[in-house]
Simulated scan of single mutants.
Amino acid sequence: MFKFNNLSLQIGGNEILRHMTGEIPEGSITALIGPNGSGKSSLLSLLCGLTLPTEGEILLNEKSLNKIKRSIIAKQIALLPQSNPVPTTLTVSDLVTFGRHPHRPWYKKVAKEDKQVIDWSMNEAGVTAYAERLLTDLSGGELQRAWLAMVLAQDTNILMLDEPTSWLDIAHQVSLLKIVRRLNKQYNKTIVWVLHDLNQARQFSDRAILINNGEIITQGDVNDVINAENITRVYQTSVKMHSLGNRDILWPEEQL
């Protein structure tokens, strides 16, 4: 689906990304991981077409991304950013309806087809029960699911999520991760997400791209990328893999 070759990005004279080459297979869940400031969100922005690379090329289904019209990209790629403003007068239903804008002119009323997609999106994100509540009345977890519903209403095959679990408690983190995994398995959505929790990335993703200092260190099957050796080296923190029930988890070895 996505192939990118020799991507570099400079902003204000600073080299943010250097010579990145890789791919995002169709129907996969790919985690972008790496230390803070490594370039994960910058790569996501390039893949969405929001930022143009200084060098290199991105292909989406064998077509150069920078030659595809923004209106067409909006029907293929939906992005959930790290943070969003919270309008004080909008309900959840109002917010989700905005996701239909790429499919209809702003001056047209919501059609029957739009309503069906909106209802589906709210149901999948688990927000139907509070569809008429104001956004300002929601908890952090409820609000994040409302934003996810809006992204789903865009009705794209590709979802890009930038740190979707940040600031959520563990219950809402797991809930959101399960929703995204179900969307991948049931509807074959291609997912690219930035995650900081390496164990969650390992559990809920198929592939991973490990980034450090603006360069791709390694990429491939999530279990091959997120292992003790790679994480110890890149994060400069000694970690080991431990068995917990039927799952392996990474845990730091530093003694307090």
Score class of each variant (00 low, 15 high):
residue 5 N to L: 11
residue 5 N to Q: 14
residue 8 S to C: 15
residue 10 Q to S: 04
residue 12 G to S: 14
residue 13 G to Y: 06
residue 14 N to A: 10
residue 14 N to H: 09
residue 15 E to T: 09
residue 17 L to S: 02
residue 19 H to M: 08
residue 20 M to D: 05
residue 24 I to G: 07
residue 28 S to L: 03
residue 28 S to I: 05
residue 31 A to L: 06
residue 32 L to M: 07
residue 35 P to E: 01
residue 36 N to M: 06
residue 36 N to I: 13
residue 39 G to D: 11
residue 46 L to A: 05
residue 46 L to N: 04
residue 49 G to C: 03
residue 50 L to M: 14
residue 52 L to K: 13
residue 54 T to L: 13
residue 55 E to W: 07
residue 56 G to V: 12
residue 57 E to K: 15
residue 58 I to Y: 11
residue 59 L to N: 05
residue 59 L to P: 14
residue 61 N to Y: 11
residue 61 N to C: 08
residue 67 K to H: 07
residue 68 I to P: 12
residue 70 R to W: 03
residue 71 S to Y: 13
residue 72 I to D: 07
residue 74 A to D: 00
residue 76 Q to I: 05
residue 76 Q to L: 06
residue 78 A to L: 12
residue 79 L to W: 02
residue 80 L to D: 01
residue 80 L to R: 09
residue 80 L to S: 07
residue 86 V to H: 05
residue 86 V to F: 00
residue 86 V to G: 08
residue 89 T to G: 10
residue 89 T to C: 11
residue 91 T to G: 05
residue 97 T to N: 01
residue 100 R to D: 01
residue 100 R to K: 08
residue 104 R to N: 09
residue 104 R to A: 15
residue 107 Y to A: 10
residue 109 K to W: 04
residue 109 K to S: 10
residue 111 A to P: 14
residue 111 A to I: 09
residue 112 K to R: 12
residue 112 K to Q: 06
residue 113 E to W: 11
residue 114 D to F: 14
residue 119 D to N: 09
residue 120 W to E: 03
residue 122 M to N: 00
residue 127 V to D: 02
residue 128 T to P: 07
residue 128 T to C: 05
residue 128 T to R: 09
residue 129 A to K: 06
residue 139 S to D: 00
residue 139 S to G: 02
residue 142 E to Q: 15
residue 146 A to Y: 04
residue 149 A to N: 06
residue 150 M to P: 10
residue 151 V to N: 03
residue 158 I to A: 03
residue 159 L to R: 05
residue 162 D to T: 08
residue 162 D to E: 07
residue 162 D to C: 11
residue 163 E to S: 06
residue 165 T to D: 00
residue 165 T to V: 08
residue 166 S to C: 06
residue 167 W to T: 15
residue 169 D to R: 10
residue 171 A to R: 12
residue 177 L to W: 13
residue 178 K to R: 11
residue 179 I to H: 10
residue 180 V to D: 01
residue 182 R to C: 09
residue 184 N to S: 07
residue 186 Q to T: 08
residue 186 Q to A: 13
residue 187 Y to M: 06
residue 188 N to G: 02
residue 189 K to P: 00
residue 191 I to S: 00
residue 191 I to N: 00
residue 193 W to N: 08
residue 193 W to T: 11
residue 195 L to K: 07
residue 197 D to K: 03
residue 198 L to V: 04
residue 200 Q to C: 15
residue 203 Q to K: 14
residue 203 Q to L: 13
residue 204 F to G: 10
residue 206 D to M: 05
residue 207 R to Y: 09
residue 207 R to H: 07
residue 211 I to S: 01
residue 212 N to T: 09
residue 215 E to V: 15
residue 216 I to V: 12
residue 216 I to E: 08
residue 219 Q to N: 11
residue 219 Q to V: 15
residue 221 D to I: 15
residue 222 V to K: 00
residue 223 N to Q: 13
residue 224 D to N: 14
residue 226 I to P: 09
residue 227 N to V: 13
residue 228 A to T: 08
residue 229 E to C: 12
residue 229 E to Y: 12
residue 230 N to H: 14
residue 231 I to V: 09
residue 232 T to L: 12
residue 233 R to G: 11
residue 234 V to C: 02
residue 235 Y to L: 15
residue 236 Q to S: 10
residue 237 T to G: 12
residue 240 K to M: 13
residue 240 K to W: 10
residue 241 M to W: 07
residue 241 M to N: 04
residue 243 S to L: 14
residue 244 L to Q: 15
residue 245 G to L: 13
residue 245 G to H: 04
residue 246 N to E: 10
residue 249 I to K: 00
residue 253 E to G: 08
residue 254 E to D: 10
